[in-house]
Computed example of a mutant assay.
Amino acid sequence: MSTPHVLLGLLATGTRHGYELKRAHDERLPRARPLGFGQVYATLGRLQRDGLVAAAGQERDGGPDRTTYALTGAGRAALDRWLGEVEPPMPYVASTLFAKVTVALLVADVDRARAWLIAQRRAHTDRLRELTAAKSAPTATLDDVVALDFAIAHLDADLRWLHTTLDRVADWHREVHT
């Protein structure tokens, strides 16, 4: 994820201070890793240094002064360029799950490798059920549903791959160990 671009996008809707940006990020991207305040303010500092945001004023809401930030013309242009770029599919398989299954198939006998795959499939299935239930919860917002659809699609793909791999364990094991 590009935190600077997400913050630029949030500022495109109006001026905000760091706390509001963190809260808006965590609400709009509900299944993403929450941003830390330090990350927000460090990113705002870089964006300001690069001329993509500017301080728009100070607010005091019963506490310390808070600097509000606004998107600059250069920031809007950078955001528009980023949004206009097609995100290329990942060129490499970079998944802990893939690496773990491959290593399990290399080092374990067929029964043990199959047991690990079945346990992993069970964990994925349990998580899929949790996310599906969360999606139909009465408190689910549209942000939640969009994020859950994304997570569910990825879990479903992992489950299909685990199922296919389970069907191939004996053949794969025989090929590796001959």
Rank of each mutant, 00 (worst) to 15 (best):
L10Y: 10
L10N: 02
L11V: 12
A12I: 12
T13P: 00
G14F: 08
K22Y: 03
D26T: 07
A32N: 07
P34I: 07
V40E: 02
A42Y: 11
R46Y: 00
L47F: 04
G51M: 03
A54L: 06
A55W: 03
A56L: 05
Q58D: 00
E59M: 08
D61Y: 11
G62C: 11
P64K: 15
R66I: 12
T67D: 11
T68Y: 09
Y69V: 05
A70C: 07
L71K: 06
T72K: 11
T72R: 13
A74Q: 02
L83T: 12
G84V: 09
V86L: 14
E87R: 12
Y92G: 01
S95P: 00
L97Y: 01
L97M: 11
V103R: 14
R112I: 14
R112K: 15
A113M: 07
R114V: 11
I118L: 14
A119K: 12
D126G: 04
R127V: 04
A133G: 05
A140M: 06
L142N: 05
D144S: 05
V146Y: 09
D149Y: 08
D149K: 11
F150Q: 15
F150I: 08
A151N: 09
A151K: 14
A151G: 04
A153F: 01
H154T: 10
H154N: 03
H154V: 04
D156Y: 01
A157V: 08
L159K: 02
W161V: 07
L162V: 01
H163C: 00
R168H: 11
R168G: 09
R168E: 07
D171K: 15
H173L: 02
